[in-house]
Design a protein around this nucleic acid. Sequence first.
DNA 1: ACCTAAATGAGAATAATTTTCAATTGACCT
DNA 2: AGGTCAATTGAAAATTATTCTCATTTAGGT
Lengths: 148, 148
Amino acid sequence: MPKDFESSQESYAKEVLREKGLKSTAQRLAVVHVLHTSGKSLSVSEIHQEVKDMLGATGLATIYRTLEMFEDLGIVKRLHFPGGGYGYTFCQGRHVHHMVCVDCKGVFDFPECPVENFDYSSVEKQGFRVKDHFIQLFGQCVKCAEAA
Amino acid sequence: MPKDFESSQESYAKEVLREKGLKSTAQRLAVVHVLHTSGKSLSVSEIHQEVKDMLGATGLATIYRTLEMFEDLGIVKRLHFPGGGYGYTFCQGRHVHHMVCVDCKGVFDFPECPVENFDYSSVEKQGFRVKDHFIQLFGQCVKCAEAA
DNA sequence: ACCTAAATGAGAATAATTTTCAATTGACCT
DNA sequence: AGGTCAATTGAAAATTATTCTCATTTAGGT
């Protein structure tokens, strides 16, 4: 019988790490766990705190290093908030956009891409070649709307 | 005859400030000037440097305070770059999106809104009420494409 | 079980941002 | 044009965020 149950999100991260010759450390897997179970965007220090709750003493630098690496690998995505400040959310390498509740910072996936079929001719006329895009929707989730 | 010529961007900022009972100081107008003439997104310290070039000694805190205020007033917009880091661009209260050249950080306006007529029903089904959005396109401008 | 490169932790170092407060200045009112 | 006063500024200190260094630990292949 299996010795240990792991989420598909953790397996996914392990696989990506292995492909790149990087190690699946307890700290890295804890970051994945914390992010994918939280349902909301977490700041670096929130992630640090939760990883410490799981593993005990953990260096903050490790959290920074892990998040930067995960962002490059497409495992997590960095979201920015209107007032300034940012947080991370798990995205598992998919091209997803997110709705962020401005009250609770809850993150909701938004898999259809609003600009997928958009006609860029007006900007391409200026010679600009579009290569990527960043989209975030802001609003209020049900819970926060009811609480208000 | 007019003693002093000012851009429509500066008049606009003055007007917004006056409406809110805020003062049009030399520092604030210099920030507007620097941003709207630069054609690209500028970091806080770049803005600080250019304002110092115009006015002489200027506190960095003033630049931070001004940019935060201008962002709230919709006079400027904060753009975020893929690697982390951000910059400001002038937007004169309009709802515009921007294309950012990842090489030179040049900013190009993009007045049509790609999500204007987008069907949010899939996210609204989850109870999420969309109130605002943030869109940025990344790519390469003509100059940088030719230089490459 | 060993080996080795990769990763970590702890703290120092650096960078970014905010706060404090006395001095200055812009806008309004004669 | 000058006076008044709240808003704003500059400078430095304080705080917060991020990166770096390096000795120690650890994952993953043999």
